[in-house]
């Protein structure tokens, strides 16, 4: 009898605890989603400018999206979108090759300079990211790449040039692929290149996709590098720099709501990609061979 009572009170306690937890999580979710919700709300708001008087818009409209896509004389959003797409496709291909090549080299090949390279990579990673950015800009300028359509080339090179240093995750993945597979290939007379392309890469789908998508997203997310390299020529802006420009003091009055519309348009595909990517990341982390 007493036991049952005790059990019962423990269960009530448990229920109260569960209720508290769920309420707590709901409140946190609202806090977390609030800015997301706010951007969407903003993008449909009719009222211009940053200083709003009511939380809920008085009138909803699609005009902001229209302005963003069709009033291209001041801010050419479709063009920025195209620029970013072009840059990210090329830089993602180069980056992926660089990352996979270096990771494979560090994981599977043994040569004299391997250890020194690993150490140098560690040290280089400790320099503040854009410490050298100004110098990169001058190098690109000295190469004559900071004007006209060559800016595309400059940005692609800037985004993918140092990609070889980002090898840690995929090296970790390659390390988990059994060496016996390589040896089997070698006995069958495959060259090391063939082992890399015909055995390792097909086994590494999650990490290849992860690298590809991660590199693809880079130019959409970065804005510091693009801002420094592109400079004032608006026609070569990437989306991030462009949207940032909409919020500068002289533009914010007219472009705050279209900015929100642009943010929504960019965030949806990028979030989808990111959430998709997360799956491959988890898969990649758990190694090539499932236990």
């Amino acid at each position: 009898m007493r036991d049952k009572q005790k059990q019962g009170s423990a269960r009530t306690k448990q229920r109260i605890m569960d209720a508290i937890v769920h309420i707590f999580l709901t409140i946190l979710s609202i806090i977390w989603l609030f800015p997301v919700f706010w951007i969407v709300l903003l993008s449909f708001r009719e009222q211009k400018g940053q200083y709003i008087k009511t939380f809920w818009p008085e009138k909803f409209t699609f005009a902001n999206y229209q302005k963003l896509f069709f009033e291209t004389d001041i801010f050419n959003f479709p063009r920025w979108f195209g620029n970013t797409l072009l840059i990210s496709v090329f830089s993602c291909l180069i980056t992926t090759f660089f990352v996979l090549a270096v990771s494979y080299g560090m994981s599977r090949l043994r040569f004299k300079l391997r250890k020194p390279f690993l150490n140098i990579a560690l040290v280089l990673g400790m320099f503040p990211g854009f410490f050298s950015m100004v110098a990169v800009y001058y190098i690109l300028k000295a190469l004559g790449l900071t004007e006209g359509p060559k800016i595309y080339l400059a940005l692609i090179m800037a985004y993918s040039g140092t990609a070889g240093l980002g090898f840690y995750i995929s090296k970790g993945f390659f390390d988990t692929i059994p060496k016996a597979l390589d040896e089997a290939g070698m006995i069958d007379g495959a060259t090391k290149w063939q082992i890399f392309t015909k055995i390792t890469i097909p086994l590494s789908k999650p990490i290849v996709v992860y690298t590809l998508l991660g590199a693809f997203m880079g130019p959409w997310l970065d804005f510091v590098f693009a801002k420094v390299i592109v400079g004032p020529s608006q026609e070569y802006y990437t989306v991030a720099v462009g949207l940032y420009t909409m919020l500068t003091k002289e533009n914010i009055i007219n472009w705050y709501a279209p900015f929100a519309a642009g943010a929504v348009c960019i965030s949806i595909p990028i979030s989808a990609l990111f959430l998709y990517l997360q799956r491959f990341y988890a898969e990649g982390m758990s190694g090539a061979v499932k236990g």
């Binding site: 660089f98 090549a101 080299g105 050298s132 950015m133 040039g161 240093l165 060259t191 090391k192």
Partner: peptide
Amino acid sequence: LHKGLLFLPIMGIVTFMILPLLFM
């Protein structure tokens, strides 16, 4: 293969990381 695979990535690192770092 290590030379073949690493040549371009390392050239990239030298040009866009080490050289600018030294300059800065």
